[in-house]
Design a binder for these strands. Structure first.
Lengths: 194, 194
DNA sequence: AAAAAACGTTGACTTATATCAACGTTTTTC
DNA sequence: GAAAAACGTTGATATAAGTCAACGTTTTTT
C-alpha cells in the first residue's frame, strides 16, 4: 500500500528508512480513492488533507467571475497535491482541487502529522527538500512567464514535463501555461508543420 | 554586527537562540559591504554566497539578447538574496545580482555552512520555514501573473509590499511586475486621477 | 556648477494573444 | 448505440500591452 511513498521518500533523502520510520509513515498516511471529477478541496473550504499521488492525475485551479478555470498546478504519480497555505495556516482556500482521472492517494491530516511524524527528524529534512525544490520550480515558472512567448513556454513544458502533455488535454495544458486553447492549438500547428 | 540576523531568526523560529547557536551564526556569517551597482553575482558564475540584507536594496535579474534587464527578485532589509539553485547545486547562474544602493550584507559560503551550521538542528527548521514561505509567495506570484491585469498586479504589490514602491524607481518595479515602464506610468496616471 | 545620466511621461503605431463563433471529431454517458 | 458532452481547429475581429520616439525633469557625476 505505502511502498510507492516509501520509495519516493527514500529517493528524496538518499538514504533508506528504518523500520520505525516506515511504521510512522504507514500510520500517518491513509489511502484515499477519488473518482474522476471528484473534489479533494473546494474554494472556501479549509484544506484538511495533503496528498501523495500513487496513481492518477489531479489539478488545482481557481475559478473567476465568468466561470473560467485557471489552472495553477497539475500533478500526476509521485507528486504532492494540496493547498499548503490553507493546510498549514488553516485559512479558507482560494482553489479547487479535483481528480482528473480516477486517482489513488495517500493522504495525511495535520493531526496525524503531529501525532506520528512531527517528532521524526527525517521529516524536517524531507519537508525542507520538497519546499526548496518547489520554490526553485516556481521561480523558473515566474521567470518563464516574464520572458518567454507562448510558443517558448510550450517548448519549455515539452522539455521539462513531457508527461503532462500526454496526460492532460490541450485546454488544460493551455490554461496551465497561461494561454487560451485556441492559441495553443495554433502554436502546435506551427511547430508540427516546421 | 549580527544582531539583525539573530533577531530575524529568532522571529522565524518563534524561540530564542542559545548562546551556542548564536556563536555558530556569528562564525558562519561574515559581513560584506557592496557599493551601489556592485555585483554579488554575474551570469555564468557559480553563486558562492548566500546573503542576508542588513541594510540596503538589491535586485536579481536576467539580461536578454537585446540587453534588456528582466527583474525576477527585489530584496531589501531582512530579506535573503542569492541564486539558490546555483548556490546549492554548484551550477552556473543565469542571473545577475547587484546592489541597487549601498548595501550591508551578512554572507555565508557553503563551506562555512557545512562547518558551523549543518549540524545545528535549528537550521533544518529555519531553512524549511524560509523555503515554505518562499514557495507560497511564488505560487501567489504565478497565480497573479496568470489572472490579473497590469493594473491589478500593481495594486497587489502596493498592498503586499508597499516598501518596494518607495525604494525602487518605476522602471525597476515595472520589470518586476512584468510590464514596461510606459505601461506602469499610464496605469499610475489612471489610479491617481480616479 | 556644468555635463551627463537616469527617470518619468505622453503620443502614435504595432503586435501577440484573447475573444467570439462555427464546425467536425472523438469520447463519455445512460 | 444514440444522445450529449468534451475536445480540437480555424477564421474574423478586438484589445491589452509593447515598441519606438520625443521631451522635460530630476539626480548623479566630476
Amino acid at each position: 500500500m505505502h511502498e510507492a511513498l516509501i520509495t519516493y521518500i527514500h529517493a528524496q533523502l538518499t538514504r533508506v528508512l528504518s523500520d520505525d520510520e516506515k511504521a510512522a509513515i504507514e500510520k500517518a498516511f491513509k489511502p484515499k480513492k477519488l473518482r474522476k471529477h471528484q473534489y479533494l478541496l473546494q474554494e472556501g473550504e479549509v484544506c484538511k488533507l495533503a496528498g501523495f499521488i500513487v496513481k492518477g492525475a489531479m489539478k488545482q485551479y481557481s475559478v473567476d467571475e465568468t466561470g473560467k478555470e485557471n489552472i495553477l498546478v497539475l500533478a500526476i504519480e509521485n507528486w504532492w497535491i494540496g493547498d499548503r497555505e490553507s493546510f498549514s495556516q488553516g485559512m479558507p482556500s482560494a482553489y479547487f482541487i479535483d481528480a482528473f482521472e480516477e486517482t489513488h492517494l495517500l493522504v495525511i491530516t495535520k493531526e496525524d502529522y503531529e501525532k506520528h511524524l512531527s517528532q521524526q527528524p527525517f521529516m524536517a529534512d524531507l519537508l525542507r527538500i520538497l519546499a526548496e525544490r518547489q520554490s526553485l520550480q516556481l521561480l523558473k515558472r515566474v521567470h518563464a512567464t516574464k520572458t518567454l512567448s507562448a510558443e517558448q513556454r510550450l517548448a519549455d513544458l515539452e522539455k521539462s514535463y513531457p508527461a503532462f502533455l500526454q496526460r492532460f488535454p490541450q485546454h488544460i495544458i493551455a490554461s496551465y501555461l497561461g494561454m487560451t486553447k485556441e492559441t495553443l492549438s495554433r502554436i502546435r500547428g506551427n511547430s508540427t508543420k516546421k
